[in-house]
Write a protein that binds this DNA or RNA. Structure first.
Ligand SMILES: [Zn+2]
Length: 531
DNA sequence: TGTGCCGGGTT
DNA sequence: AACCCGGCACA
């Protein structure tokens, strides 16, 4: 591994890159002009780079950032190096104020058109030396400038920090680099071990923006990138927003503009021709809603083979998996809040799933399908696991439907089975014990709360996690007639009857937020107490 | 008023 | 992905 690589493809010529200008140690935009020297066992290839401002010089492959070369800066960025970062969904351009090599944190100085400066702190990896094309997200966000203004204006905790660091003054930015003393440009002045979370913006932007031009020029032609205004000339240097964005109107002086015509690169496109992008995947319809996608996708796989599945019996959960390994994993993750794959001590997972016959599942799915018209329920049993794991809502609904329509769907399709704790004619899930192997399976949690038959958890009562305990409390709570009441009580069209189950928030209280399950902390559907 | 959590944002 | 949070429907 003599560190040799052959990025020689001749297509490299003309590639837009950011290359090191030896004289001042900073990177500047330009294009590969030629291969000045082939790579040799001892030396790296040398390229001639023509900078956008007309200068030209040679650089080794290591000193070039761009397609075919390093993907991003690696060395220390010099003070005042021009960089691009994404901020609030937009690409902005700033100058490096300080780069801390130890943690690869870079403090970047930014400035708004109104002249105010502020700094942000980014990881080196998040920094680009070249403008990037807009990401899918940037594209449709580009129109919503009100957000930006909003953000800026409503920043309450303004920290007057921006000047605590040595930030190049606006004037300084006109560095005419080519002529700056390139000699002892060590400028090791601003080193203070400071760094750290410098901060966010602290800026106020004029009321300008409120005009949200609702144009969404999703023109895929963005690939053409700019061409004409590639130069970062001192004059309008700090345009702040990279040209690609600027062209959508914000900084172009007028709130109104949206000139949809693609950037004419007519002027000349000698070199730019080879500025091709890896893939034009932008043209794809792109991310539809994940749920639907998931659905349709899932419904394509499946195997009518094995009939035995594993179903989670955790109260309210009915996730089904193909293998016991999977189900155990699910249990650990969803119900024990363990992210890892480690087995629970004593393999407690085993107590929370049962084996079920395919047929039974199908009927379940069927009944579910019948009622749920909105989504194609052609889900095959084996995909259920995923569907459920990914979409708790789905899972929840499904469970409701099941318990609702269970009485009929069960029919005789059930092989031999032994129900655990027969507490009346309630809907206890049939437990099937396959001839061959014997596995423990339980359904203690589905029983109705008949006065007398206590909801007894698996013999293993000896040890219960706090979650289980709480779980049971809920199960025994006076309101656990879930089964008997219609989940669709409110006649409302899309009214979703909220479950009675108390979730982390309520169980632990606001004070013990740290004990909530992660989802609850994030205000997402609780994974610990499923309905 | 408080809860649950979806949808949307940022990093 | 992780994290955060506005705001809504429901209780
Ligand atoms: Zn929770």
């Amino acid at each position: 591994m003599s560190g040799t690589k052959r990025l020689a493809k001749r297509s490299i010529i003309g590639t837009r890159v950011s290359a090191l200008w030896q004289q001042d140690g900073r990177f500047y935009p330009g294009v590969i002009r030629a291969l000045a020297a082939e790579e040799t066992p001892t030396n790296q290839a040398l390229y001639t780079v023509r900078f956008d401002d007309g200068f030209e010089s040679n650089a080794t492959s290591k000193e070039i950032i761009g397609p075919g070369f390093a993907t991003g800066p690696t060395g220390r960025l010099k003070h005042a190096q021009k960089v691009f970062v994404t901020m609030n969904g937009r690409e902005v351009c700033g100058l490096v104020a300080h780069h801390d090599r130890r943690v690869e944190d870079v403090i970047i100085s930014l400035k708004h058109s109104n002249g105010e400066e502020f700094t942000i702190n980014r990881k080196l990896d998040d920094i680009r030396l070249m403008e990037s094309r807009k990401s899918a997200r940037l594209v449709d966000q580009a129109t919503d400038y009100s957000k930006l203004a909003d953000l800026q204006l409503s920043e309450p905790k303004r920290r007057a920090v921006s000047h605590s660091i040595d930030v190049p003054s606006p004037a300084f930015k006109q560095r005419h680099r080519r002529h700056r003393d390139s000699s002892g440009d060590t400028e090791g002045s601003e080193h203070g071990g400071d760094f750290d979370d410098v901060d966010i913006m602290d800026e106020t932007i004029a009321a300008m923006v409120l005009t949200s031009l609702s144009v969404s020029p999703k023109s895929p032609t963005i690939t053409t990138q700019y061409r004409g205004e590639t130069t970062f000339e001192p004059t309008q240097e700090h345009s702040y927003v990279s040209s690609s964005v600027a062209s959508s109107g914000f900084y172009s002086g007028h709130s109104e503009r949206d000139d949809p015509s693609p950037p004419h690169l007519s002027e000349s496109a000698p070199a730019s021709s080879s500025f091709d992008f890896p893939g034009r995947s932008d043209l794809v319809p792109s991310d539809s809603d994940t749920r639907d996608t998931l659905h349709s996708r899932l419904s394509e796989q499946g195997d009518p083979e094995d009939r035995i599945k594993y179903r989670c019996t955790w109260r309210g959960c009915s996730t089904v998996c193909l293998t016991s390994t999977q189900i155990e994993r699910h249990i650990r993750r969803a119900h024990f809040d363990r992210d890892s794959d480690l087995e629970l001590s004593d393999r407690e997972e085993e107590f929370y799933y049962e084996e079920v016959d395919d047929v039974d599942l199908d009927s379940v799915t069927q009944s579910f399908a019948g009622m749920y018209t909105s989504s194609p329920p052609s889900i095959l049993p084996d995909s259920l696991e995923m569907a459920r794991t990914f979409d708790h809502d789905y899972q929840r609904k499904e469970e409701k439907f099941r318990s609702h329509s269970h009485g009929h769907s069960q029919a005789s399709s059930v092989p031999s089975g032994g129900t655990f704790g027969q507490s009346g004619a309630t809907s206890s899930i049939p437990i099937t014990i396959p001839e061959g192997q014997i596995k423990r399976s339980l359904s203690w949690q589905i029983q109705a709360p008949s006065p007398g038959s206590l909801v007894s958890p698996p013999q293993r009562t000896s040890k219960m996690t706090p979650q289980e305990r709480l779980q049971q409390h809920q199960a025994q709570s006076p309101k656990s007639h879930m089964l008997s009441m219609s989940p669709l009580k409110s006649a409302g069209p899309h009214r979703k009857p909220r479950s009675e189950v108390r979730k982390c928030r309520k169980v632990y209280g606001m004070d013990n937020r740290d004990q909530w399950c992660t989802q609850c902390k994030w205000k997402k559907a609780c994974t610990r107490f499923l309905d």
